[in-house]
Each structure stands twice: as C-alpha cells, then as structure tokens.
Amino acid sequence: MPVTIKDIANQLKISPSTVSRALNDHPNISDETKALVSAKAKEMKYQTNFIAAGLRTKKSNSIGILVPHITSSFFSTAIDGIQKVVSEHGYFTIICQSNENYHDEVDQLRSLLSCKVEGIILSISSDTKDYEHLETLTAYDTPFVFFDRAAPGFDMPTVEANDYEGGYQAVEHLVKRGRRRIAHLGGPKELGISQRRYQGYLAALKAYNYPINEDYVIFTNPEVSHEKEIEEMFKDKKNMPDALFTFSDELAVEAILKLKKMGLTVPREVSVVGFGDSNLCEIIEPNLTSVTHEPKIMGEAAAELLFKVIQKRHIPKHEKNLKFDSRVVIRDSSR
C-alpha cells in the first residue's frame, strides 16, 4: 500500500492537516516542522498524489507535449530533457504525437486541454497549414511554447535549432572534403525547418561558387520511401552527385542503404551527411556524419521557458526566442 499523509501524521504524532500544509510549504507552518515532515516523508518514501492535489488546488500539475513523432530520435531525446525539468518542478508530462497529420494534431491538442494541462510544448506537424486550433490556445490564455517547429504569425516563446547554419556547415564540410557535386535530399517543402536547411545548403554552394543543379534537389514526404528518387538521382554514374546532404538522419540511412544496393560505396564514391546526430549515426555502416544541435538541452530550455510563461514571469526579448547553434559531427560517411 502506498504511504499516505495520515501514515506520516501517525508517525510524527501530529495532525494530517499539519502534514499536508507542511508538504505544501504553508506559511503558517514553522520551518522546523516542515523539515521534520519532509525528512519523514522521504524516509517513508511518500509520493504526492498529483490527482488529489490537483482537485484541491484546481491545478493538474501536468505539462502537455505534442510532437510529430515520439519514435524520432530527435524528439525522444528532447522529451528526455523536458521531463527532467518538469519533474524538478514537481509536475508530470502527458505526451502525444500527431504523426505529421493536421487532424491528429487538433485532436491531440483537444485531449491535452481536456486533461487541464497547465502548459503545452508544441512542435507542429508538416501537414499543418491552418492554425485556428492554436489561436484557441491564445484566446484562452493557455501557456505554450513552440519547440523546433513554430507556426508563423504567433508571438509566442520559441526554442529551435539554427537550421540555416546547420545546412550551411554541412555543405561547407563536404566542400572542404573535395566534393564538387553536392545533392540535397530535403524534408517537406512547406516545412519551415526544411526550408531553412535548404537555404543554408544554397548559401554554402553560392559562397564557394558552386553551380546550383535543380536535379540534385529532392523534397520528401517523411511518411513514404524514397528509394526511387535516390535511384534516379544516382543512376548516371558519370554525372551523379559525389555527396549528399539530407534533411534528417533517417533519410541519410535510407540513402546509404539504397546506394549500397546500387553498388556504390560510401564515402569513396558518395559522401553522406545527415541532420540530427541520432543514435542511427553509430548503427549504420559506415558511421554517419551528422549535424547536431543538442536536442536534450533544447528540451530542457523549452521546459524552463514554459514554466516562466506559466508563472507569468517577465521574459527578456533575447530569451523569448532561443536558437541553438549547430555543428557537424564528423564520422566515416564523409571522411
């Protein structure tokens, strides 16, 4: 049986109401009693009943997280960081995924609100073009923070990676490795982070006076296979790209596996650079060079920012929109 407030009260021979107020840092309870109750609660492995506490205080002590894919290495690592901070604040998380689908995003957001979460960390789906559901959040003063993917036109706190910088650095790395025909396997064309990585790719090519070949650029749908597109890009051995920068590590792994099927060697004939620095980088052979932006630290920052919004604390302008630097982690796929 779980330990209750009454059990602690019986051990200390004080009233349950005194124990409850001590655990909730009530100003009428002395520091000595608070310390005594806290020590006994820890000794007895007492755990707060968040549901009961929410009913008493009209607070749920919960934070909602809504991301496109929980299985994505980037988002799962970020969630780890979010949960660390949320737990330190005495809250718990409710995690949902939209599966890159607008209607699922709306439904999951509605579910989070029905659970009376006190704030939401949100990364919009690639399918989301209508933002009425987000306008509802602002209309009802629901605290939320955009994470990695933000909707345009909303003056809300945002935590994101410097995707443009990451795209530029990836191509610059390939240029310095002597590659001359650098292709790009991008994400969904309408997605902001996909466009920023693509713009970084273009900027690096221009900076080094490389020609821009439209045949070397493919925008993708993350929900389907791209083997045919990759095969088409690399079928002409004389004019095929000698390097490939991809929107994600998942796309990079798919590309490497397809190139191997086609009899091409990585990195001797084609260098490959992914984006995300996920666990996949160490699993695939050769190990994948990738752009990293520290998703766990980004997740921690998003949670801290959300609690500032919940507590209605002043957020300086330079802290309201946090952008994390990117860097290339070099491995065998581009050496």
Results as ranks from 00 to 15, higher is better:
Tyr198Thr: 04
Tyr198Pro: 10
Gln199Phe: 11
Gly200Thr: 02
Tyr201His: 01
Tyr201Asp: 00
Tyr201Leu: 03
Tyr201Met: 02
Tyr201Gln: 01
Tyr201Cys: 02
Leu202Phe: 11
Leu202Gly: 12
Leu202Ser: 10
Ala203His: 12
Ala203Lys: 09
Ala204Phe: 02
Ala204Ile: 06
Ala204Glu: 05
Ala204Val: 04
Leu205Phe: 01
Leu205His: 01
Leu205Val: 04
Leu205Ala: 01
Leu205Ser: 04
Leu205Asp: 05
Lys206Glu: 14
Lys206Cys: 08
Lys206Asn: 13
Asn209Ser: 14
Asn209Val: 05
Tyr210Ser: 07
Tyr210Ala: 06
Pro211Phe: 00
Ile212Val: 15
Ile212Gln: 03
Asn213Asp: 15
Glu214Cys: 09
Glu214Asp: 13
Glu214Thr: 10
Glu214Phe: 05
Tyr216Trp: 12
Tyr216His: 13
Val217Glu: 00
Phe219Met: 03
Thr220Phe: 00
Thr220Ile: 01
Asn221Arg: 09
Asn221Asp: 15
Pro222Ile: 13
Pro222Gly: 10
Pro222Met: 11
Pro222His: 10
Glu223Gly: 12
Glu223Ile: 12
Glu223Asn: 14
Val224Pro: 08
Val224Thr: 12
Ser225Glu: 15
Ser225His: 08
His226Asn: 15
Glu227Asn: 15
Glu227Thr: 15
Lys228Gly: 11
Lys228Met: 14
Glu229Thr: 11
Glu229Ala: 14
Ile230Gln: 03
Ile230Cys: 06
Met233Phe: 09
Met233Glu: 08
Met233Leu: 14
Phe234Ile: 10
Lys235Thr: 10
Lys235Ser: 12
Asp236Gly: 10
Asp236Ser: 09
